[in-house]
Design a protein around this nucleic acid. Structure first.
Lengths: 339, 339
DNA sequence: CGCCCCCGAGAGAGCGTTCCCGCAGGTGGG
DNA sequence: CCCACCTGCGGGAACGCTCTCTCGGGGGCG
């Protein structure tokens, strides 16, 4: 759209004012709903606006107001993974979108893939494109939140950071979720309960393993641990290893539904029946949990709610309100057929 | 961030220029990489920039340049559905993101849920927030593309519109995909081939049914049709009806993987073995197609590529280049175990 | 040795909006 | 009946940047 672009010029507030026979200031008042405008003048301006098809220039507006009424949701994971099997990011998007929509704000979704895009996201968010930023990261070591906070840009992150928290965060109660799962297994008479843990450089992986350990400790049972990376394939491998380590195990708690699905497959291949021989519990309550054979008992984390909460916090910060440095949302056991 | 916000002021180009001992114009030249700046001056300015932590104010910049270097991807579907079982939207996002990333442009994702948000999207895109818009819609009757085109805002849509196309569109070859599926069934000796069609108010639904009919016609076979709405549940219902209509059928082509998954379930409940008694082919090549029992033979549509293509077209339009009014991407049969 | 050209840098005019003032006219109270 | 106050509108500056125009100076060529 260079200067030589075809078609008529975009109408400006000036032209609206001229057509309505008022000053630019008054036209602006009408656009922004100021009450101190006489009804007949308001009418005239509104008519001029529809006649010309006027739409305010956001750049000019935010140049002076210092606001954009839009908020970024930064997803720090390659786009490929962001929207793959795992509905984690999509659900956060959905939740944040709901809240911002209701508040008349715009959600701007950004993905960080490469190093280059990392820099561009920084430029974008620091460049005044948005009034605040939500950072949804799977790994805790992202420098972005700190950078933004240092520039006084409102920031909220998901997941307890690995180090000392520098910005408000929202997380689900991973540890309690794991405890719920293990307790259910114990309550239903399981004796040798193994776990397929998540990556131990991610808080979610760490906390879920801690919950598993804690609950087993409370009932004096031994832990049997293999580690995966949250994917289905890693679940298959981990399950095989667990079976090799302890052929007598009668239950397994996987730190993700995908790994649980992998475990189901490995168990079937090994000739074990689920839940008769081995009970399986997953974590996440993915879509996939309902379609496995048998359907997965799993720990549901309220991810949509997590997105909603992040957005709400952000709005409150922007409004100058104080917010808790940490918000933890409860998890819940969904009992299906696998345990 | 009102005027009373805490923390230091944002550095401006003016302050950078002052610190480097040059004029604002020269500082601007350095920021924008103009070649006509003496090396030692460039050095001084760059040093001032890092010292002050200067980041250009995008609003001010785009106010004068009339560009924002960002592009909107509008998803016209409720956020709930946008990121549900179906990876359609996620894949488009992924593809578009790749291309725009590479071009140094920013992707702005917007979702249209309610009528109110529809209006906000219009305001946003017309308000000069973006240089161009991709509209990804499942239904053909969206007024947004037309509105944008009328305002000379570059637009690309996905899917052939139901009416007369007014803006360039990108689609996958739904009809040919359906033909591929039916041909495969014929080639493997199936005689009575039914279909679970998609909604007939969506182009994808229409085209896939057309392909099915055309291919059957070519070999003088009768068509057996039930209709669903692309969901799993509707697939179950449609399959039951098909079995009632023609108990002798030996194959079914479903216009979506989810409906095919539903068909699998209905067939199992009816005591038919897949693929021994009845062959099943889906459409989409969803994630889910690999996890069904048995894994689905299906028609893969290159959705990521579709997203890429939309973005590429948009960039070309913005650059003033001409583009084809229609681009159709090929589909491909993925043979697994269900047929 | 002189002229012209070109390269590098500065001055200044906008871009479209908001918002602070200032002013006019009308209203109520003293 | 006059003055103070309030309500409603207009003028103008400012937001931070880009870009054109202009100008000065140095080097090359005649």
């Amino acid at each position: 759209m260079g200067p030589g672009a075809p078609g008529r010029e975009r109408p400006t507030l000036e032209s609206v004012a001229a057509r309505a026979g008022v000053s630019r200031a008054t036209a602006s008042r009408v656009v922004n709903g100021s009450p101190t405008v006489a009804p007949h003048i308001r009418e005239a301006v509104l008519r001029a606006i529809t006649d010309l098809g006027y739409v305010p220039n956001q750049a000019a507006r935010s140049l002076v107001t210092q606001r954009t009424d839009s908020f970024a949701l930064v997803l720090t994971e390659s786009a490929g993974r962001v929207f793959s099997d795992d509905p984690f990011f999509p659900s956060i998007v959905q939740g944040a979108s709901q809240v911002l929509d209701a508040a008349g704000k715009q959600l701007v979704l950004m993905m960080v893939n490469s190093g280059a895009s990392h820099e561009r996201v920084e430029q974008y968010t620091l460049g005044g494109h948005v009034d605040g930023v939500m950072v949804a990261s799977l790994h805790g070591a992202d420098p972005l939140p700190g950078t933004l906070a240092r520039r006084n840009i409102p920031v909220v992150v998901n997941g307890r950071p690995l180090g000392r928290p520098t910005v408000p965060y929202v997380d689900v109660d991973n540890e309690d979720g794991a405890r719920l799962a293990v307790r259910h297994l114990l309550d239903t008479g399981r004796r040798r309960i193994a776990t397929i843990a998540g990556p131990q450089d991610m808080v979610a992986g760490i906390d879920r393993l801690n919950g598993y350990r804690a609950e087993l400790n409370d009932s004096d049972r031994r832990s049997i641990i293999a580690t995966g990376d949250f994917t289905r394939e890693s679940g298959i491998a981990a399950m095989r290893q667990l079976l090799a380590d302890d052929p007598e195990l009668d239950a397994v708690f996987a730190a993700s539904d995908l790994m649980a699905a992998g475990a189901l497959r490995a168990l079937r291949q090994a000739g074990r029946r689920v839940p008769d021989d081995v009970a399986v519990i997953g974590f996440d309550d993915n879509e996939i949990a309902r379609y496995t054979e048998p359907p997965l008992t799993t720990v549901r984390q309220p991810i949509i709610d997590l997105g909603r909460t992040m957005a709400r916090l952000l709005l409150r910060i922007v409004d100058g309100g104080g917010v808790d440095p940490a918000t933890v949302l409860p998890t819940e056991l969904v009992v299906r057929e696998s345990a």
